[in-house]
């Protein structure tokens, strides 16, 4: 049996919504057969659902604007950004249009729009095709930012995003497309909370008290898991890993409850260290649960540099397993 990857799961979720809801339309560059999208996520769907997938010109701003108009008038459009980096081209439509309409019209309208954005590096695509630009949208009230990991049901998540009455930017870690989706693990007990956008909670303390809370999302989760498995095996550091799928707006309660038990916090993301998601998480925890911390929180993130193309250079800029291990040492030594 073919293994279920995150990419296949997203495709399955799209197929189910196309079959169930005639108002769902997919728009994007090269998404129709035979190409099926730059990452082949939509392959087969245009043949299976004639007329429901629209190959768009290379007009990211225009396509997001058109989809926003469709959403305002009763359809449920899903836009595929070929690369998440191109969301910068559509920023005005997301920030000044899609995110604003419902609120600025005093709640009179809804914008059930989904923009799928393949983000992240480690595939050698270089400075303009590898970034994690979700940070640029996280500070816009009215945009929901959702990111699956292999420990989520990505089909259910994309389905929830399409059913959502609000604009959702769906962050797909490019490296996760080929990663197996599994909600059981030999190293971790895995639980899920907060549907329809659950946080995955991974615990390897086997009923004992975990030593540290590690918060992450999207394509950093496999890196964090590998590092924390090694930390457990080699140094007996037990952890609770929290991977929210709804990274913005963020419900901090789960994180705070975990930190109150462990007293130690690591927050890991792939994007640059400065002005990032991790900074916001740390700030919130310190503000509200700072007195429960026994060690200063540690951020794991990329360097404040553009992403290079050559592999050793990219590896140097992005946070890897060793970076997470270093953070564990730092937080456990205090």
């Amino acid at each position: 049996m073919e293994k279920l990857t995150v990419g296949r799961a997203i495709a399955a979720g799209l197929r189910k919504k196309l079959a169930d809801d005639p108002t769902v339309y997919l728009l994007g560059e090269d998404i129709c057969d035979p190409y099926g999208g730059a990452f082949r996520i939509t392959r087969g769907l245009s043949s299976e659902f004639p007329g429901r997938l629209i190959n768009a010109p290379i007009s990211e701003a225009g396509v997001v604007g058109v989809a926003t108009g469709m959403a305002l008038r009763g359809l449920r459009p899903v836009v595929e950004m070929m690369f998440g980096d191109f969301i910068a081209l559509a920023a005005d439509q997301l920030i000044n249009h899609a995110a604003k309409f419902s609120w600025m019209y005093n709640g009179a309208v809804s914008v059930p729009l989904v923009v799928r954005a393949p983000m992240g590096g480690r595939r050698g695509y270089g400075p303009t095709h590898s970034q994690s630009l979700e940070r640029m949208l996280l500070s816009t009230p009215g945009l929901r930012i959702v990111a699956p990991t292999p420990r989520h049901d990505a089909a259910a998540l994309i389905g929830a995003a399409i059913d959502d009455s609000n604009p959702v930017v769906f962050i797909e870690g490019k490296l996760l497309y080929a990663a197996e989706q599994a909600t059981v693990s030999e190293h971790y007990d895995i639980a899920h909370t907060h549907p329809p956008y659950p946080a995955a909670v991974l615990n390897n303390a086997a009923g004992e008290q975990p030593n540290v809370t590690v918060v992450t999302y999207g394509p950093m989760l496999p890196v964090v898991e590998e590092a924390m498995t090694a930390a457990f095996n080699e140094d007996e550091v037990a952890c609770e890993i929290l991977a929210p799928s709804e990274i913005g707006p963020l419900d901090t309660a789960l994180i705070g409850e975990s930190v109150a038990r462990t007293g130690r916090l690591i927050v890991a993301e792939e994007g640059p260290r400065s002005w990032g998601w991790a900074a916001e998480v740390v700030a919130r925890v310190v503000e509200r649960w700072g007195d429960r911390l026994v060690a200063r929180p540690v951020r794991v993130a990329g360097r404040d540099l553009p992403l290079p193309t050559a592999r050793p250079l990219e590896d140097h800029v992005l946070p890897g397993v060793e970076t997470v291990r270093g953070a564990v040492e730092k937080v456990m030594l205090q």
Binding site: G65, L72, R73
Partner: peptide, 11 residues
């Protein structure tokens, strides 16, 4: 709104 209007027309 030229783009938004175009999408509305398609809907």
């Amino acid at each position: 709104m030229g783009a938004v209007g175009t999408g509305m027309a398609l809907a």
